[in-house]
């Protein structure tokens, strides 16, 4: 029915046939690219950069968050901040681990921010480092922010925010279990999904099972 099925029904191609096919595809691609370029030139775009983008409507919100953190927590608590245009202009703030808990308290308690709902907590092994990602939401103001805290892969550790948002409890246990991030300040840091005697952290990119049979 589908194209794949038709293709698999055909006898296997010889090497020459395959090479010819690849060549034809490449030529077609080049032709298409040339046509596109010609079209762009006709439209008046002579290779110049597009006009500067409009700043995101969430930019003032992001600036306010960054300003509050630098003022009340520490001047260099914010490592980086940007707007993620691909995700509905969600503001992103990257905060240094040593300032994270005080920043979290500020984000929750400051009346103009009031991020009272921790909607998602995930860990990402970025190969060079590990990130713990917090998606925060304010139910009253209906605004959101994504906070990231980076940590090294060896001896990964991010202070726990369970005292700030109790919902972080099991989520942090899950990140500990699957990615091996320590959360100092967590009331009960144990494995949650894997058995207690499991070796290794399955969601790490270099994870190799101790027993391949499992």
């Amino acid at each position: 029915m589908s194209d794949e099925n038709k293709e698999s029904a055909k006898p296997p191609m010889t090497d020459e046939e395959r090479a010819a096919k690849i060549k034809a595809a490449e030529e077609a691609r080049a032709a298409r690219a040339a046509a596109k370029q010609a079209e762009a030139a006709a439209a008046g775009g002579d290779g110049e950069e597009a006009p500067p983008k409009q700043p995101s409507p969430n930019q003032p919100k992001l600036d306010r968050i960054v300003q509050l953190i630098t003022e009340h927590v520490n001047a260099d608590a914010v490592e980086e901040s940007f707007i993620n245009e691909r995700d509905r202009d969600l503001p992103y703030v990257i905060i240094k681990a040593e300032h994270w808990v005080t920043s979290a308290q500020l984000l929750r308690d400051e009346p103009s921010l009031h991020f009272n709902y921790l909607r998602n907590l995930s860990g990402v092994d970025q190969e060079t480092h590990i990130e713990v990602v917090y998606h925060l939401l304010s139910l009253d103001h209906v605004h959101e922010v994504c906070v990231k805290v980076k940590t090294e892969r060896d001896a990964a550790s991010v202070p726990s925010v369970t005292p700030v948002w109790p919902t972080a409890n099991w989520n942090e246990r899950e990140v500990f279990d699957l990615l091996g991030v320590d959360f100092p300040g967590h009331p009960d840091l144990r494995r949650i999904m894997m058995p207690d005697d499991w070796v290794g952290y399955p969601l790490r990119k270099d994870y190799e099972p101790l027993d391949p049979e499992v």
Binding site: N84, R86, D87, R119, N120, S122, V124, V133, H135, C146
Partner: peptide, 22 residues
């Protein structure tokens, strides 16, 4: 999927189900 990340969330019968893609 182009490089980047997104968090999508919807109301499932049990509550907020979310999917965070990197």
């Amino acid at each position: 999927v182009p490089e980047g990340e997104a968090y999508s969330r919807i109301e499932s019968p049990r509550g907020e189900i979310g999917c965070y893609i990197v």
